[in-house]
Design a protein around this nucleic acid. Structure first.
Length: 522
DNA sequence: GGGCCCGCAGGG
DNA sequence: CCCTGCGGGCCC
C-alpha cells in the first residue's frame, strides 16, 4: 500500500511499520536526526549510494508525509489522544519511559492499561462522542508546544526532561551556546545538542490528532462497508430461510455506495465506485430495497433512518400526495411511533395518538437541532392496501388520515431533496443571516449535490419547468376525491373513528406545537 | 381490490 | 435478543 504511514525503527531497532528487526545493512540512517529507518518500508528509498549518505528521513525532509490510514475514525483519534495524555500525565514514569510508551502506543503495541480502558468504555455502553473530540488539539496547544515559538513543534525534538521544541528553534538555541532546557533549565546532554533527534512518535501523534480533528465531519469511507456487500448479488434475493419468493420477503442486494450507515448528507462521487458520480437529486428506484442499495435510505421498511443519540440520515415519504403540508419545496413530516392496524403486521398492540420524541423521532429531532442535512426519498408509487386512506392510515396521528395516496404516473422512489430539517418546536440550527432561508451547507457538512441533468427531473410529473423563472417548480397535484372513512372491522371501528376525528380536529398548527409534525425546509 | 402473511434489517 | 417498521406479493 503506497498510502501507508511512514514510520522509522523504534528504540529496539524494530521497524514500526513491518514490525521486523531489519539487519543493519537493511536500514538507513537520517543524516539530520540519526533515526534508523527500514529501507524496504520506505515509499521512496534513496536511489544511489551518494544520496543515501546525505539522506533525509520523511520527518526531516520537511516533505509532508503520505496520507494517513483512512480507517481511523474520530473515535480512534480520541482514544489515541487520551492514551497519550495519560502517559504524559503519569508522574511515576521517567521521561524516557514516557517516550518509550508513546512509541509503543503509536507502533501498535497495546498496553494492558489501554485494554482496561477499552473495557471500561464498553461497559459504559456505546457512546457517540464526536463532539468531545473538538478539543483534540487542546492537548497539543498546551504541554506539547515548542517553548520558543509557542506553536505545535515542527519536526519536534524532545529533551530528556520531557520538553518539546521545533528542531529549528532548538538548533538556534544551541547555536547561541545554550546547553540547558529553555523551559526547565535542566542540562541538555551534549549528544542531543550535537545530534538532535526528531521525536517521530510525537510527529505521528500530532498528525493523527490533526487528522482526527479535520476529519470529524468527513471521516473517510470505511472499506468494510463496501466489502461486506461484495458477496451479495446485484439484486434483491430470497434467502434459504424465506419460504416465499419475491421482493416482499427478499433480502437486499449488495450496497453499491461506500458510505457508512450513519453518513449525513449527499453521497459524493468518491463513494460511488460503481459510477463515480454520486447519488444525485432526482434519481429514481423501483422499490425501497433499491433505495437501500444506493444508500439513499437504508431501512427496508421504516420511514426514518437514524439513531436517537446521533441524528437522522434520511426519511422516506410514501406517496406523492396532495397535501396542504407537502408543497414539494417544503413539507411536514410526522415521526414514527404509532401503530398500524392495516393488514396484519403486528396486531396485539394498543394505539396512542400522540407520538413521542423517542427513537427515530428523536433522531430526527437531533438532526433538527444540529442542522444536519437529511436525505429524502419520496415515493411516487400508487399506494393501496396497507396504507389506504379509508383504512385510517396510521389513525394514531402518525400519518395524516384525511389524505389519500395518489397515482401520479411514475413508479418508483426518488431522491427528492437533501433537506435541512426544522422541527417546529425546536429553534432552527442556522440563522437566516448565515444561510438565508435555504441553507445549502453547514460547517462540517459536505456541499449539497443537485442533479444538473434536467431531463432526469422532467420525467416526474410532480415538477414543472417554469420558463419565465428558468427553474423547476413543484406542481401542486389536483385535489383528491373524498372517500368514506372506516375500516369495516367492527373491533377497530370505534377506536379508528375516534382517532380520525381527533386527528382531523387537530390543526396543523396545534400538531406542530405538540411536536407531532416535523417541518422540513430545504 | 384489499387483507393477510411473510421476512429482512437495525435500533436499543 | 427482541421488537418494530411509510414493503410487497399473493390469495381471498
Amino acid at each position: 500500500m503506497a498510502h501507508d504511514i511512514q514510520l522509522p525503527c523504534n528504540l529496539d531497532e524494530q521497524c514500526m511499520r513491518c514490525k521486523v528487526k531489519p539487519r543493519p545493512e537493511e536500514t538507513i540512517t537520517c543524516s539530520t536526526c540519526v533515526t534508523p529507518w527500514h529501507v524496504a518500508c520506505l515509499t521512496k528509498p534513496p536511489e544511489t549510494l551518494a544520496s543515501s549518505l546525505s539522506w533525509l528521513c520523511p520527518d526531516c525532509s520537511g516533505v509532508d508525509g503520505p496520507a494517513l490510514p483512512s480507517g481511523g475514525t474520530a473515535g480512534d483519534g480520541g482514544d489515541l489522544v487520551a492514551a497519550i495524555r495519560a502517559i504524559e500525565a503519569d508522574e511515576k514514569l521517567t521521561d524516557k519511559e514516557k517516550a518509550r510508551k508513546r512509541q509503543e502506543l503509536l507502533s501498535g503495541k497495546v498496553e494492558e492499561e489501554m485494554k482496561e480502558n477499552e473495557n471500561e468504555k464498553k461497559s459504559k455502553g456505546k457512546e457517540r462522542e464526536r463532539e468531545s473530540d473538538s478539543d483534540v488539539l487542546d492537548l497539543l496547544d498546551g504541554s506539547l508546544n515548542c517553548s520558543f515559538c509557542m506553536q505545535l513543534p515542527e519536526r519536534p525534538v524532545t529533551t530528556p526532561c520531557g520538553h518539546n521544541f521545533c528542531l529549528k528553534c532548538f538548533q538556534k538555541w544551541i547555536g547561541q551556546g545554550k546547553r540547558t532546557c529553555a523551559k526547565c533549565r535542566h542540562i541538555i546532554p551534549p549528544k542531543m545538542a550535537s545530534q538532535p533527534r526528531i521525536n517521530s512518535a510525537l510527529v505521528t501523534a500530532i498528525r493523527m490528532a490533526k487528522l482526527s480533528k479535520s476529519n470529524l465531519a468527513a471521516v473517510p469511507t470505511k472499506v468494510y462497508h463496501f466489502m461486506r456487500n461484495q458477496d451479495r448479488p446485484d439484486k434483491a434475493f430470497t434467502t434459504e430461510r424465506a419460504q416465499k419468493t419475491g421482493k416482499a420477503n427478499a433480502a437486499s442486494g449488495k450496497i453499491f455506495v461506500t458510505i457508512p450507515p450513519d453518513h449525513f448528507g449527499p453521497i459524493p462521487a468518491e463513494n460511488d465506485p460503481e459510477r463515480n458520480q454520486g447519488v444525485l437529486v432526482g434519481e429514481c428506484w423501483e422499490d425501497r430495497l433499491e433505495c437501500r442499495q444506493w444508500g439513499a435510505h437504508f431501512p427496508h421498511v421504516a420511514g426514518i433512518a437514524g439513531q436517537s443519540n446521533y441524528g437522522s440520515q434520511s426519511v422516506a415519504l410514501s406517496g406523492g400526495y396532495e397535501d396542504d403540508e407537502d408543497h414539494g419545496e417544503w413539507f411536514l413530516y410526522t415521526g414514527s411511533g404509532g401503530r398500524d392496524l392495516s393488514g396484519n403486521k403486528r396486531t396485539n398492540k394498543e394505539q396512542s395518538f400522540d407520538q413521542k420524541f423517542e427513537k427515530m423521532n428523536e433522531a430526527l429531532r437531533v438532526s433538527c437541532k444540529k442542522g444536519y442535512p437529511v436525505r429524502v426519498v419520496r415515493s411516487h408509487k400508487e399506494k393501496r392496501s396497507s396504507y389506504a386512506p379509508e383504512k385510517g392510515v396510521r389513525y394514531d396521528g402518525v400519518y395524516r388520515i384525511e389524505k389519500c395516496w395518489r397515482k401520479i404516473g411514475i413508479q418508483g422512489f426518488k431522491v427528492c431533496r437533501y433537506l435541512f430539517v426544522r422541527c417546529d418546536n425546536e429553534p432552527a440550527p442556522w440563522t437566516s443571516d448565515e444561510f438565508g432561508d435555504r441553507p445549502r451547507s453547514l460547517p462540517g457538512i459536505p456541499e449539497l449535490k443537485m442533479a444538473t441533468d434536467v431531463t432526469e427531473r422532467k420525467e416526474s410529473p410532480a415538477w414543472d419547468f417554469d420558463e419565465e423563472d428558468s427553474r423547476w417548480k413543484w406542481k401542486k397535484p389536483p385535489p383528491l376525491s373524498k372517500k368514506p372513512i372506516g375500516t369495516g372491522k367492527p373491533e377497530d371501528g370505534k377506536k379508528v373513528r375516534r382517532a380520525i376525528r381527533q386527528a382531523q380536529n387537530t390543526s396543523v398548527r396545534e400538531k406542530l406545537l405538540k411536536g407531532l409534525l416535523f417541518l422540513c425546509l430545504y
